[in-house]
Design a protein around this nucleic acid. Structure first.
Lengths: 241, 241
DNA sequence: ATAATACACGAACATACGTCCTATGTCAAG
DNA sequence: CTTGACATAGGACGTATGTTCGTGTATTAT
């Protein structure tokens, strides 16, 4: 259950350290160039390059084209500097009190229709329905991007997901190899849940059910990643039938 | 020594609210223009104007000429409009503990072996591992009879349950029609998860996967119900393969 | 040796974003 | 009525910042 830390170069480590430190000290993220300075690199593109790797590896998150929008997801264990009382307090308040997270249920997921997405980042409130999940079950510290969908129909059984199941997803448009993602296939006009693998010239979508074969997507453009699945919950509801 | 909070106009309040909300949701501050949008103001200068006032009054901090560098210093009191996380946290603080129940993981479930059962009702403590589940996800009021098992191997895919999944079960030796039960089949020498239906002269065990056929047990004696499944949890763990 | 790949630099570019200046309207005090 | 403080709008301007592209150099695979 512990996060994997593969191939983190010295540079990567330094960047992560700088990110957390800077965030902690200033309350906002550094710019690309500031990161470059911190590791002695003059080229912004190189920093961008590293940031993308860290993103791939799931260490950080960024918003496209938005300044200083880097979020550190897995702070490295090496923290000894907590200058900001505020940050500290907030952090403590976060994980000390709310072990239970309420995730809005954005709608139902059907193979034949696109994914309903939470209408905005701000409407936690009006979600009429939601699921409560223990924080310990979730990989991400960042709760804001999580939403849940209820599976409608049998069309996802090849993903080992059945009618009535609840999938908790994280909003994203990129995926790492091995992630289970919800994708919209343009040519097939359908939504599907599959494991994502980027291969040399194509993308392999592997069903969770080991008995079923993968499908391949040659054109990355025709595949829209809507989010990655982080949790599946099935309440057995003793239905007669 | 608390800061004075004089003359906070509706606009000020709205801005503060938006700031905290946005920060909370995105992990970084909004831009001037985003703030403007949020309060229905087109002019960036006006937003700047307000921000300076808030700064004067000690509500926020900003860095000159740095994007998205606003820090909220004094989150507004109560007001019923706090960002959800905090609000929820506070609200739940009292009953959070009781809403979350810790279920011991008794062992692993394999088709080829009997179910490991919790040795006694009292050994919550020494359970090295456990899962935390929100009470709202569980049907049963009675926590003491619940235990969890981790699925080992692919042998349960006909129950739509895969390697690594966690099944939460309620200890029982009887079942009602429609329950999903874990049963030990004497003649086959295996454990399986199936929906339980008592028919006229036999018992029908129906896989969760609608594509697969049922199996029938003629002799009720050769079937031992170990418990009924109340919840299945699958954490997607992004493993390459 | 050749090709492919990862790592690195710098510069050009587009734009997101903060700053600041001008104009307009309101309203209470002088 | 005039004055001035305050609230609001619009936009010009400069720069801070993320993105992209062309190029170069090691390192590794074929």
């Amino acid at each position: 259950m512990a996060k994997r830390h593969p191939g983190l170069s010295e540079r990567h480590r330094k960047i992560m350290e700088f990110l957390t430190k800077f965030q902690d000290a200033n309350g906002y993220s550094p710019s690309i160039r500031q990161i470059g300075d911190s590791i002695g690199v003059k080229s912004t593109s190189l920093v961008d390059y590293y940031l993308n790797q860290l993103l791939e590896m799931g260490y950080i998150e960024r918003e496209n084209r938005i300044s200083r929008s880097i979020r550190v997801l897995t702070p490295l264990p090496s923290e000894s500097s907590l200058p900001s009382k505020v940050a500290d307090a907030i952090r403590n308040a976060g994980n000390a009190i709310s072990d239970l997270i309420s995730i809005p249920i954005a709608g139902r997921i059907v193979a034949s229709a696109p994914l309903p997405m939470p209408t905005s980042d701000l409407n936690y409130y009006d979600a009429e329905s939601s699921v409560d999940i223990a924080r310990s079950l979730l990989p991400s510290r960042d709760v804001s991007e999580l939403f849940a969908l209820e599976v409608d129909g049998d069309s996802m059984i090849d993903a080992m997901v059945n009618d009535g199941d609840i999938v908790v997803m994280k909003k994203t448009s990129t995926a790492n190899n091995g992630d289970m993602v919800a994708v919209w296939l343009d040519d097939k006009d359908e939504t599907t849940l599959k494991y994502f693998y980027k291969e040399a010239k194509r993308i392999r979508l592997q069903p969770a059910n080991p008995n079923m074969g993968p499908i391949y997507v040659e054109d990355p453009k025709s595949l829209r990643i809507m989010g990655k699945v982080v949790l599946v919950i099935r309440q057995i509801k003793s239905v007669a039938g």
